[in-house]
């Protein structure tokens, strides 16, 4: 047992494990999401493993592209998302992790903008607006952690004895809004939505087909795992409480997703730069001591 723990502490082992487990976790979260959404609407819903069937199927499709740079950007999107995960589990500088994560999203946007497709273009523009909307709050979150623990390193968070949620509840609320944007939940699902066929078709993802769409989906799984991993980090001292917190956030996001309709991009930026941003700032002032 002790040997096992020692082995787990090795950064290489940890990153390899994370790289394998994260998409699996993300896929299960996605499956749960679809299942519970269906139940909320009184439907039976797809099987839990449906996201995996989807990506396996997508791998076997014909690789349609518009030109080569598009594929490059898809790869960059995935690779940078993976780097984010690796850096997070090896306890690197959180702010750098965040910036790399931001570039990963930017790579997706650039891929969407590199092709001459109006729908993809509109989706990409909205995606940048999304990044613009949530980036400051994420940075403030990291700064809040720095203020509390005195270090930017991810490992410092795990070493501290007090759960983050005690000292930064307001930042946590702001972070939930960010999660809603990142996971494309209503009312923030402006850039690509399963429900917006008439408006933007599939937004940023529009021009990816077959295996390349599969790559973006896997990256999205990573993103899901990353987001919920961070939620877990808010209450890392007690696994049970962390799990509870996660469930609450998850169900809350689903309810909001089903209860709200999609709103405009301008509204999103205005909202994010007022309510969650001031929440985050208020929390920071309190942390300043």
């Amino acid at each position: 047992m002790e040997n096992m723990m020692k082995w787990l502490n090795d950064p290489v082992v940890r990153s390899v494990l994370a790289l394998i487990l994260a998409p699996v976790l993300g896929g299960i979260i996605m499956g749960l999401d679809r299942k519970i959404t269906a139940r909320m609407q009184g439907r039976m819903g797809p099987p839990l493993m449906q996201p995996f069937y989807d990506i396996i199927k997508l791998m076997g499709k014909e690789p349609f592209v518009l030109h080569r740079p598009q594929i490059l950007y898809t790869m960059l999107h995935l690779v940078f998302m993976m780097i984010t995960v690796v850096m997070l589990v090896t306890g690197q500088d959180l702010l750098m992790v965040l910036l790399i994560h931001a570039f990963s999203s930017i790579a997706l946007v650039l891929g969407g903008m590199s092709v001459r497709s109006p729908y993809s273009w509109i989706g990409s523009q909205r995606k940048i607006m999304q990044i613009l909307a949530y980036e400051p709050i994420l940075i403030l979150l990291i700064l809040g952690i720095r203020l509390r623990d005195g270090s930017f390193l991810g490992s410092a968070v795990l070493e501290s004895q007090e759960p983050l949620i005690y000292s930064m509840p307001l930042l946590f609320l702001a972070f939930v809004c960010v999660l809603a944007i990142e996971f494309g939940k209503s009312p923030f699902d402006v850039s690509s939505s399963h429900h917006a066929h008439q408006e933007i078709v599939r937004g940023v993802y529009q021009e990816y087909a077959g295996p390349f769409y599969c790559l973006t989906e896997i990256a999205h799984f990573y993103e899901l795992a990353l987001g919920f991993g961070l939620v877990m980090a808010f209450w890392h001292t007690n696994i049970l409480c962390g799990f509870l917190l996660e469930t609450v956030v998850f169900l809350f996001l689903l309810v909001v997703d089903n209860a709200f309709s999609r709103l405009t991009t301008g509204w999103m930026v205005r909202y994010m730069w007022t309510v969650p941003l001031s929440l985050a700032l208020a929390n920071l002032i309190w942390l300043w001591r």
């Binding site: 518009l66 030109h67 740079p69 946007v109 650039l110 969407g112 903008m113 590199s114 001459r116």
Partner: peptide
């Protein structure tokens, strides 16, 4: 960057 590298095949 998006506008600049927007191109057909």
């Amino acid at each position: 960057i998006g506008k600049m590298q927007n191109t057909g095949y």
